[in-house]
Amino acid sequence: MTSNFLMRECRRTARNLQRFLDRDPSAPLSEDDRRRVEAHLKECEKCRTLSEEFQALHSSLSDLGSTLAPSDEAVDRVKAALDRALQAETGQP
């Protein structure tokens, strides 16, 4: 395998890596692109490291999300305020 081919695949992988990792339904990769990224990650240590770093970053940010969930009290306050506002508007309990 030539280094030119490898560099081309590295660029292609870098372009598609976020979509490959996210699997977001709004922007799916084609099956062909998905297979190419998978194959390239198996053979290229540099891109594999990059992929692992993005996964670690996502995992840290996602963990952070669980600590930032709104409290049950906040949800209850919003519901109670909504009930009061609608009651005042409609005159119905």
Binding site: P25, S26, A27, S62, G65, L68
Partner: peptide, 22 residues
Amino acid sequence: DVHGLSYAECAEALGIPVGTVM
């Protein structure tokens, strides 16, 4: 990444295209 919205949901919340989110 923190709140787990999809690209499309984030685009709705900010009023920008999905491509811009990406």
